[in-house]
Every structure is written in structure tokens, then in C-alpha cells.
């Protein structure tokens, strides 16, 4: 298991954003995480990536308890994340944004530059390499988030709604990209509202509702789960 959470909880003052969350992910799987807005998905990512510490519970990465480590230490250990609201480094070009990520594991400038170009290519952003990162469209910004995270050469990638706002054909392309990342041996945690992508892409799906896991299983099983339909999918299904 590359990632294991045991009874993880997080409170913000009186608000319980997550409670009693336990699950584990085997290497090179795509685990979907779905749930209504405010269910705690982004908070879960923030706990795994180390932006916040859990209020209680343990988070293990490759068997090691990483709950007390800083966000940067976790990135160096191999956990990369995208931000739900894209956060390009505004004064850097698209290429330089990815280059900054590539420097995580590579000291040499030309070698890091090579990896950055390869990663841009991989994410279909090469044409925009020298553009200011603030000039990108929303779908491009989402891909830049992925590219910068990928350039750190992670083993676990946390994707937070990278398909939100994409057109159907762009969703298809993003799904291809996710599969190719997984095929390189990277484990993916995939927060998404686009059900078509979740159902097609994920090996397993965890459903959060008000900070608790209400279902955990194969996409087909989740789809038929009464509790999930009530809490999230709705009676008409397939949002």
C-alpha cells in the first residue's frame, strides 16, 4: 500500500471537516474521491499533502508515518498535488512554472529544462511554453497544474477537480492523460465531479459525505449504492 489513512479527522474550530476517514491505496491505482461541495475532499488532500496537520489519526506513505512532516518534505518524499483553484506562479512563464517543479529532484539547469520540456509535451502544453502563465485559458491552467506537479516526479499524485469546466472532448483528452500518468507507475487520487470520468477511470471510488466515508468500492458498485444515490448521485443518476 502506497498510502494508508487510519481514523483521520480534521476540525476547523467547531467545524468537523473530516472524521474517522480510513482507507488505503495500492500502488499504480486510480482512486476516485467523490462527494458534494463541502464534503471534505480538498481538506483530505490538504492533510495528505501536508498543508494542514490532521487533528487526529495517522497518515502513512509507503509504510512511514508522515503526519508530522512539512508539505515540502512530503513533496520530496513523492507526493505531488494540484490546486483546485489553479495557482500558476504569475511572474513565471508556463515553461518556468514547470521548470520550478522539475528542480525538486534535479539540480542541473539544462537537465531540469529537459524534463520540463518533456513534461510540457506530455501534458500538451508545448505550444504555450513561453507564454505568461497568467494568459492561459482555464483548461490550460488545469493542465499546467498537472504538469508542474508531474515535473516533481511524484509517486502519488493528488488531482483536485482538474476536469471541472472542461468540454466533453477536453475531458476525453484529460482521461487519456490520467491513464498515461498511471501507466508510468504513478498512483492517482482523483477528486472529480465529472461522473463519466470517475466511472471510466477509477479502479475504486471512495464517497465522502459531511466528512465521513459513506461508501468505498468499485465504480459499478458505487453507482448502485442506495446511500450514495441519496447523498450524492441523485435518483435520476449520472450528473
Amino acid at each position: 500500500m502506497i498510502l494508508t489513512l487510519e481514523n483521520v479527522a480534521r476540525r476547523f474550530g467547531g467545524l468537523v471537516a473530516l472524521s474517522d476517514v480510513s482507507f488505503s491505496v495500492p500502488e499504480a491505482q486510480i482512486l476516485g474521491i467523490i462527494g458534494k461541495n463541502g464534503a471534505g475532499k480538498t481538506t483530505l488532500f490538504n492533510l495528505i499533502a501536508g498543508r494542514f496537520a490532521p487533528s487526529s489519526g495517522t497518515i502513512r506513505f509507503s509504510g512511514e508515518d508522515i503526519g508530522g512532516r512539512s508539505a515540502s518534505a512530503r513533496a520530496m518524499a513523492g507526493i505531488a498535488r494540484t490546486f483546485q483553484i489553479p495557482e500558476p506562479l504569475p511572474r513565471l512563464s508556463v515553461f518556468e512554472n514547470v521548470l520550478a517543479g522539475a528542480f525538486a529532484r534535479i539540480r542541473d539547469r539544462s537537465e531540469a529544462g529537459r524534463l520540463a520540456h518533456e513534461t510540457l509535451n506530455f501534458c500538451d502544453l508545448s505550444a504555450k511554453a513561453d507564454v505568461a502563465s497568467t494568459e492561459l485559458t482555464v483548461p490550460e491552467l488545469k493542465r499546467l497544474e498537472v504538469a508542474r506537479a508531474l515535473a516533481t516526479q511524484p509517486r502519488l499524485l493528488l488531482l483536485d477537480e482538474v476536469m471541472a469546466g472542461l468540454r466533453p472532448n477536453e475531458v476525453d483528452e484529460a482521461m487519456v492523460l490520467c491513464r498515461r500518468i498511471r501507466d508510468r507507475g504513478v498512483t492517482i487520487l482523483f477528486v472529480e465531479h465529472v461522473m463519466r470520468a470517475v466511472m471510466n477511470l477509477c479502479d475504486r471510488v471512495v464517497v465522502l459525505d459531511q466528512g465521513r466515508i459513506i461508501a468505498d468500492g468499485a465504480p459499478a458498485a458505487i453507482r448502485g449504492d442506495e446511500a450514495v444515490i441519496d447523498a450524492y448521485l441523485g435518483r435520476e443518476a449520472d450528473a
Binding site: S72, A75, R81, E87, R148, T152
Partner: peptide, 19 residues
């Protein structure tokens, strides 16, 4: 580049392994 990342966003900087 790592300083540039910090200057623009410490959250992003940390997410790409910078202390």
C-alpha cells in the same frame, strides 16, 4: 527559480518540495 516560487506563492513552493 525556487526563490521565484516562494516570492509568488509559498503554498505552491511547498507543494513542489521547496522549504
Amino acid at each position: 527559480y525556487q526563490l521565484a516560487a516562494i516570492r509568488d506563492s509559498e503554498d505552491v513552493a511547498e507543494s513542489i518540495g521547496i522549504s
